[in-house]
C-alpha cells in the first residue's frame, strides 16, 4: 500500500498524467466538435497518425516546431475535407467512411515514411518541444511541477478546452453548430447552410485530431514509429461519450485516463508488479475507462442528429 501512496505523492507521476492526457485532449476536442455538428468521425485514429507523421517530418526536414504543428493541422484538415465531402453532401455511411479514412490515412503516413526514409531501421529523433516552466507557478510544490513545467503544446491543449467551450455555448456560430447536430432542418429553416457548418466542423475537428497526433512525435516521443498512436483515437471517441459531449467533462475524462495509464506503468515496477503479469496492468486503463463510461454516460444526451445525413430537398 505504501508503494501506491508514494506514487500518488510524487510530482513526476502527476506530470506524466498531464503529459499523457495532452494529445487525448486535442483529439477529443476535435471529435467533440465533429459530433456536436452531427458527424461521427471514425477517421480520428488515422488522422492522428497523419498528424504525428506530418509534424515530425516537417521538423526532421528542417522546418520549425510551430511550422510542424501547422503542417500537421493542415494535413488533418485535408483528410477532414475528404471525410466531410463523403459524409455531408454525399451522405454516405459515417461508419464506413470513417474506418476507410483511418485505413487510408494510416497507410499513407507509413507509405510516405518509407518513401522518405527507405532504409532506416531506427527512426531518427528530432529536436522536440522543451518543457517551458512558468515562473512562480511552477514553484508550487507537487502541483506546480506537474501543471506548469510542461511543453507549450500542453498549455495550448488546456486553453483549447476553454475556447471550444466558449465557442460552442456563447457564440452564434456555436449555437448553429449544435443545432446542426440536433435538428439540421431547424438550421436550414433559418437560411443557414447545414453542409457548410458540418463540413467546417469536420475539417476543424480533424485538424485538432492531427495536432493531437503531432503531440506524440513533437512533445512526447520525439520520433515517429509505426503503431505509435496505438488506439488513442478510439479512446478519444469514448472520452467524448464519457464527457457527455461537454468539453469540460471530456477534459476530466482525458486526465482520468492519463492517471490510469501513468499508474499502470508505475505499478509494474512495484512489488505487486513482480507477481502479476504486466499485460494485466496494460489492460487497466482501458478496463477502468469502460467502467467509467458505463457509469458516466447513462444520462448523456446524444446529439439527436448524430450520424443522420441531411438532404435539403428531402422531407
Amino acid at each position: 500500500m505504501g508503494e501506491i501512496l508514494e506514487i500518488f505523492l510524487s510530482a513526476s507521476f502527476w506530470a506524466a498524467v498531464i503529459r499523457i492526457a495532452s494529445p487525448l485532449i486535442f483529439a477529443t476536442m476535435g471529435e467533440l466538435i465533429c459530433e456536436r455538428a452531427g458527424v461521427l468521425n471514425l477517421g480520428i485514429e488515422g488522422i492522428m497518425v497523419v498528424g504525428a507523421f506530418a509534424g515530425w517530418m516537417t521538423v526532421y526536414s528542417g522546418g520549425g516546431l510551430w511550422t510542424g504543428v501547422m503542417v500537421a493541422m493542415f494535413a488533418g484538415m485535408l483528410f477532414g475535407l475528404l471525410h466531410g465531402t463523403l459524409t455531408v453532401p454525399f451522405g454516405l455511411s459515417q461508419h464506413v467512411v470513417g474506418l476507410g479514412i483511418t485505413l487510408l490515412a494510416t497507410a499513407s503516413a507509413y507509405f510516405a515514411y518509407r518513401l522518405a526514409l527507405p532504409r532506416v531501421t531506427t527512426p531518427p529523433r528530432i529536436e522536440a518541444f522543451q518543457p517551458l516552466p512558468i515562473p512562480i507557478l511552477s514553484d508550487i510544490p507537487l502541483i506546480g511541477h506537474a501543471l506548469f513545467t510542461q511543453t507549450p503544446l500542453t498549455y495550448l491543449a488546456f486553453v483549447l478546452v476553454g475556447v471550444v467551450s466558449f465557442v460552442l455555448f456563447r457564440t452564434p456560430l456555436g449555437l448553429a453548430l449544435r443545432a446542426a447536430g440536433e435538428n439540421p432542418a431547424a438550421v436550414a429553416a433559418q437560411g443557414l447552410s447545414v453542409t457548410a457548418l458540418r463540413m467546417g466542423a469536420v475539417m476543424v475537428g480533424s485538424g485538432l485530431m492531427a495536432v493531437g497526433g503531432a503531440f506524440l512525435t513533437m512533445s512526447a516521443f520525439n520520433s515517429f514509429f509505426f503503431e505509435m498512436v496505438n488506439g488513442r483515437g478510439w479512446i478519444c471517441i469514448a472520452l467524448v461519450v464519457f464527457g457527455a459531449w461537454m468539453p469540460g467533462k471530456a477534459l476530466l475524462g482525458a486526465v482520468l485516463f492519463g492517471m490510469f495509464d501513468a499508474l499502470q506503468i508505475r505499478l509494474q515496477q512495484t512489488s505487486i508488479g513482480a507477481d502479476v503479469p504486466y499485460q494485466l496492468f496494460l489492460m487497466m486503463p482501458f478496463v477502468l475507462s469502460i467502467l467509467a463510461l458505463v457509469i458516466m454516460s447513462r444520462r448523456a444526451s446524444v446529439p439527436a442528429a448524430l450520424m443522420v445525413p441531411f438532404n435539403k430537398g428531402e422531407r
Binding site: R170, T171, P172, L173, L175, A176, R178, A179, E182, N183, A185, A186, V187, A188, A189, Q190, G191, L192, S301, P303, A304
Partner: peptide, 23 residues
C-alpha cells in the same frame, strides 16, 4: 424545425445573429 436538446430561447435565437459574431 426545432431542436429538442436546446432551450426555447436558443431555438428562437438560432440564425438571427451574425454567424461570426463574437458573442
Amino acid at each position: 424545425t426545432l431542436a429538442d436538446n436546446l432551450s426555447v430561447l436558443e431555438n428562437v435565437v438560432l440564425g438571427t445573429q451574425p454567424l461570426w459574431g463574437a458573442r
